[in-house]
């Protein structure tokens, strides 16, 4: 069981399943205790993505959906490093991102927020980490948007992230926020994270990553669950 425990979600950091202020959790959070599982071959492995051919513009959301011009909004470039809990880099792992446009509107058909769509912005992309676990993508800074959780509820600016690592237990879906956002204080999704973890979800503005006359630079480093940096032989 010790291997299992070392790789579990850290309850001092991670949100709990049920968080009453985020009302959708009330009917959707598991109510019974999770069963501890001794990892089998299946849990000790995960999908590898080295055979995937990413499109040349997959990591540039400012260009990957252009129809008749450039998307509207503030161009940003996001850099980061993906490591495990020992700080070892996680190379060649897939990162998928999706987000609202600069006006706070998602392309998704279910989003009915009365803000304009941008014909030149889809708001999704992906990249792989390099051999040292580093990644980079270009996008437009997403806008805040209202949601129905409570009266006058607004989501802070955020980019959704999906990551894998090399076991299914290192799977992570998270959201990257921006420094100084006044909405963070009122957002139950962000506040559901334990105090020790909250800062880790806020990207840092970095002048050194900022590209002159082009895009503001932000850094967002990510720590995946687990200790094992060596991909298992699973092909």
């Amino acid at each position: 069981m010790s291997d299992l425990m070392e790789n579990s979600f850290d309850i001092e950091v991670q949100p709990s399943h049920l968080y009453l202020a985020y009302t959708s959790t009330i009917l959707r959070a598991p109510s019974k205790p999770l069963l501890l599982l001794k990892k089998s071959l299946t849990e000790k492995t995960g999908p590898l993505f080295e055979d995937f051919n990413l499109g040349i513009l997959d990591n540039d959301l400012t260009k990957n959906a252009i129809k008749n011009g450039e998307p509207i909004g503030e161009r940003i470039v996001v850099h980061g490093k993906v490591v495990n809990e020992k700080g070892q880099p996680m190379p060649h792992t897939l990162i998928e991102i999706w987000q609202a446009n600069a006006a706070g509107r998602y392309v998704h058909k279910v989003d009915q927020h009365d803000a304009p769509l941008d014909p030149n912005f889809l708001g999704t992309g992906r990249c792989m980490t390099d051999s040292e676990g580093n990644y980079r993508f270009y996008t437009i800074k997403p806008g805040a948007y209202p949601w129905g959780n409570h009266h006058n509820a607004w989501r802070p600016n955020h980019i959704h992230f999906s990551l894998f690592g090399n076991e299914i237990s290192s799977r992570l879906i998270t959201q990257m926020y921006f420094p100084g956002d006044p909405l963070l204080e009122y957002d139950p999704i962000y506040q559901a994270v334990k105090a020790k973890g909250r800062e880790l979800l806020i990207s840092k503005f970095d002048l050194n990553l900022t590209e002159p006359d082009f895009a503001l630079g932000y850094r967002f480093d990510i720590v995946l669950r687990g200790h094992n940096a060596t991909p298992f032989e699973n092909r």
Partner: peptide, 27 residues
């Protein structure tokens, strides 16, 4: 399974957040 039991963890896990309702066009 190469886990070095003598080393303590040094990094705090990045917290999980919901996938939300609008993953469809991306994932």
């Amino acid at each position: 399974l190469k886990i070095d039991k003598t080393m303590n963890t040094t990094k705090t896990q990045t917290p999980s957040q919901t996938v939300g309702p609008y993953f469809g066009y991306g994932l």
